[in-house]
Simulated assay, not measured.
Amino acid sequence: MSPTADDSGPTAPGGTRIAEFEADTRAHRRLYWITEPAELAATVREHTESGRALLAGAATAAGTGAGAGTGAGAVRLALAESLLLMGRVELLGLHDPATARDSLDRAREAAAAAGDPLLEAAALAHSALLAPDRAVGGADTEGGGEAAAALTGARALLTAAGTRAAGVLDWLDAVEAERAVRDGEYARALRLVGRVAEARGRGEANPVPDWLDWCTTARIGMLKGRVQLAAGLVSQARRTLLYAMGGVAADDHGQRALFYAGLAAVESADGQAYESCGYACRAMEHIEAGGDVMGVRGSLAQYLHDSCVEDLYESLALSPAEPATPSDITGVRGSGDKTA
């Protein structure tokens, strides 16, 4: 980071300025969608260390009457957001819950010190995903109690915050749906994700903070498709993912890679190996164009089959992937659904 051009504002040792720190924090929101997890985690970790030094400098300035007390609050808010982002990457991208727990705990502390219950609740809600997955043999009691307590605490914080927390409450339903899938509670997960998808469809009524850019219609659609697939509703998952991907820009390589990986899983579940391979190749194409966002590359190997890999991947390399549109839904086939 470099000093601000006008040399204004409170400073910490080394010339780091509060406005610059806040700007870098905002920039990292987009990096989440275009940067490989290990690289992003290293970047944000360094950034949080700068924030700690900046906070110490602001506190010293306030203690000596230099007027930096209000600046300390701004740093705490930005630091809380950065720690939340780092915890999210560590948990969902690097699959390192132990390290993520420390980051999320520090995010909660910073948000509480800054007086922002929405950020505090978001960090607490992520903690619900740290518990073992009961659906795949995790602990049935201790982990479930930890997750329930985290979600209850987050909801209490948001309820106390009033109407400004309405959009974050929508997102909390998405976190609960994810937790329910991990615990094998598919009917409950379907109810929750249906509710949040409907709420975000009229999202103007429930705005979300700028840092909560995970709660878009397309991203909730991706979650809904994953929940449907987990519940065995294969053709519904296919339709949901194709439709939701219609709202993602063709050059949004990170998001498109995730969608195509999801579609590869759908076709594999439906016994369509060749179609699964094709979607996996599409995902790889977007990864090569935009980075291995959230570590999706590792999940694709199981969907790359036989000689179709060479044929499909060679043809895809010659022409960019075309964006899917809602009209693509008319061509999908296959039932493969269980009753919920």
Rank of each mutant, 00 (worst) to 15 (best):
D116C: 14
S103E: 04
E310W: 14
Y313A: 12
L55E: 01
S235V: 09
R26C: 11
R26T: 01
W33D: 12
A78P: 07
V193C: 02
D270Y: 14
A340E: 05
I18P: 00
L212Y: 01
G298V: 13
G143N: 02
S307I: 14
L316K: 14
A66P: 07
L94W: 01
V332C: 10
Q236W: 11
V181N: 06
A68N: 01
Y243W: 15
D213H: 02
D7G: 15
A56Q: 07
P117M: 10
S335Y: 12
G194K: 09
I329H: 15
T70D: 04
R179P: 13
M294I: 09
L157F: 08
A160G: 04
T16M: 03
A177D: 08
L263E: 11
L83R: 07
T141C: 05
G51V: 04
G51C: 05
A100W: 10
Y313S: 09
D183S: 03
L304Y: 13
S82K: 00
H47F: 07
L31Q: 03
A41L: 11
S8T: 00
V309P: 08
L158N: 04
D102K: 11
G278M: 14
V75G: 00
R297Q: 14
L84A: 12
A68P: 00
R333I: 13
G331K: 11
G291T: 10
E20T: 06
A135P: 02
D306E: 07
R195D: 10
E146M: 13
A187F: 07
L318D: 13
C281T: 02
A321M: 05
A289T: 14
A283P: 06
E178F: 11
V196F: 08
G298A: 11
T64S: 07
D116A: 10
S307E: 11
G295M: 05
H286Q: 04
T60S: 12
A147D: 02
E275M: 09
D6M: 12
R219I: 10
D213T: 04
C215D: 04
A112L: 08
V168P: 09
G295W: 00
G71E: 12
G298C: 10
A19G: 01
A177T: 06
G143L: 00
T325F: 09
E198H: 09
A150F: 10
F259Y: 05
P209G: 03
V332Y: 10
G203N: 08
T217Y: 11
T48G: 08
L263H: 06
T152W: 06
C215H: 14
G336D: 10
G203E: 02
V168N: 11
D140Q: 12
A66C: 12
L104H: 06
T35C: 09
A280I: 06
T35R: 10
P323S: 15
M294H: 06
G138T: 06
L172M: 02
E49C: 13
V227W: 02
A62Q: 14
T152H: 09
A174G: 09
V136P: 00
E120S: 03
G247C: 06
V75S: 00
T240V: 14
A41W: 08
A113M: 15
D306S: 04
L169V: 07
L242Y: 05
